[in-house]
Design a protein around this nucleic acid. Structure first.
Lengths: 140, 140
DNA sequence: TGCATTCCCTACTATTTCGATAGGGTTAAT
DNA sequence: ATTAACCCTATCGAAATAGTAGGGAATGCA
């Protein structure tokens, strides 16, 4: 299941993307519009900024804005930043690989192969959807 | 991420499937072979029995055995039993549907549509792999 | 300069989930 | 009767998740 952190993050990004002509958007505006606790959202946006997707402007008139072209921000990037690995077992993760402690040999592990397939098919979907696309669909 | 419960469950099923000519397999045998805590495995097998995949025989010489044809037990069934929904948001779950508390309208929700696609592609993979197939691959 | 606005950052807390254990009860073979 | 095996519920500790607290720093404007 998607964590609320991730879900809120996606919603916030969608909001920012849909209002990007307004200049920097304050946390408070997003929090109110999307019904997210201000403080919780603050930590989420911080993560997205450190992850290079958002940038911020301090002080009066400040807020958050997109650092990257929304056509180049993919759902897989966002989810990885906020939830970590997309794979269902660490031993098939591309970005967070780790050996499974309970598995003697990956090459003969049926779970490994199955989850590799799952990862690939999931990634195919998540990489094919950009923030720009999602934003468009959400405003319909 | 797959929980250990699910992972252990799959491993246990694979073991039982690979030794089904031996008659009922005691928990202790599986626990030792797959390096799983006996007691923990006990609760997992109980779930699988209640879910209709396994059956058990009590008393001396007892143990667990497959109730269904391993060609008819799919990975999606096992994972649903042990981990719950396959979908990443409740509002696109086929077997565990629930309205997202924070989403005003599913029809205009971009996350909903995206996660629907993810669910479909994941399910396609998980439904295509039966316990029999996994068991074969694991023994290679 | 002073003040309001807004982000920055760390730490903390409450709740839930996960992994595992405990322990006694029931069933069946010999 | 004894022993091997499953049955079932409760509980516990650790980790993850969701959310809170609170002060600090930068910026814009009067």
């Amino acid at each position: 299941m998607l964590s609320k952190k991730t879900k809120y993050g996606i919603k916030a990004l969608t909001y920012i993307c849909g209002h990007k002509s307004d200049g920097p958007i304050p946390i408070a505006t997003i929090a109110e519009a999307e019904n997210i606790s201000h403080k919780f959202l603050e930590t989420i946006l911080l993560t997205l900024r450190k992850g290079g997707i958002l940038a911020s402007k301090k002080g009066k008139g400040g807020g958050y804005y997109l650092l990257k072209d929304p056509n180049e921000v993919f759902m897989s990037d966002i989810i990885r930043l906020l939830s970590g690995p997309i794979a269902m077992v660490p031993c098939v993760s591309l970005n967070f690989y780790e050996k499974c402690d309970d598995c003697p040999d990956e090459n003969t592990c049926g779970i490994n192969r199955l989850m590799l397939e799952v990862r690939d098919s999931t990634l195919k979907v998540l990489k094919a959807k950009s923030l720009a696309q999602l934003t468009l669909e959400s405003s319909k």
